[in-house]
Amino acid sequence: MLEHLELFFKSIFIDNMVFAVFLGMCSYLAVSKKVSTAVGLGAAVIFVLGVTVPLNWLLDKYLLQDGALVWLGPEYADYNLGFLSFILFIATIATMVQLVEIVVEKFSPSLYNSLGIFLPLIAVNCAILGGSLFMQTREIPNLGLALNYGVSSGIGWFLAILAIAAIREKIRYSNVPAPLRGLGITFIITGLMGIGFQSFGGMLTGDNEPPEPTEATTAKADSKEEEKEIKKEIEDEKRTVSYNDVINK
């Protein structure tokens, strides 16, 4: 139970798909202009990640890993099909997305209308393939944890796109320098949010690992102070934005 909780919070906050490893940035930037569409895409990502990561885990365990084919008989124990993982993972993802699209269209037209246009986008969303590849490199031990990892990474991505969409809706009222408008300011805000998310880094380490007095930690401490300042700035910004909003209304 504890390891499930740990993985859950770790994948949402510490290894957040967008802020820690920059996966799914293309759709994150393209579809974050309005909160409602961002919610639709985010929900679709949670769903597809939750389906494909466990499936690819099974593929990895029983087909791709070194010696995974041993269930066919002892003479297959030496085979390592690891080099095929990219092509099999992406095939699974593309097929699943297609399948989900067909099923959803058949059984829930209303859900299809709100989710449907995003599904083809998702097949080439790096967050999905990235989820499976990280699942493989981090050697997640069992199917339950793989499902957990898929869903919680999806939730992390959902939170990120929701937050940026809300900020972008508000930032329209601010006076951004013209060359920075649109893409530029979105990059910089995402960077600042990423710095904020870095502060979750110490959340699960507790006091089991004594910090080593190296240059790296002192640098970290410095950057943490910076983070706090920046966070404060963001909060201040948010406050002034909502204040402006009230005035506009």
């Binding site: 013209a178 060359p179 910089i188 960077g191 990423g194 950057s223």
Partner: peptide
């Protein structure tokens, strides 16, 4: 500047490149 090593710095650098290019 240890700040440049952490991942979010990349976003800020790209943001600045966009700024310069569009100016």
């Amino acid at each position: 500047n240890g700040f440049m090593i952490i991942p979010p710095a990349a976003l800020i650098v790209v943001g600045i490149i966009i700024w310069v290019q569009r100016s």
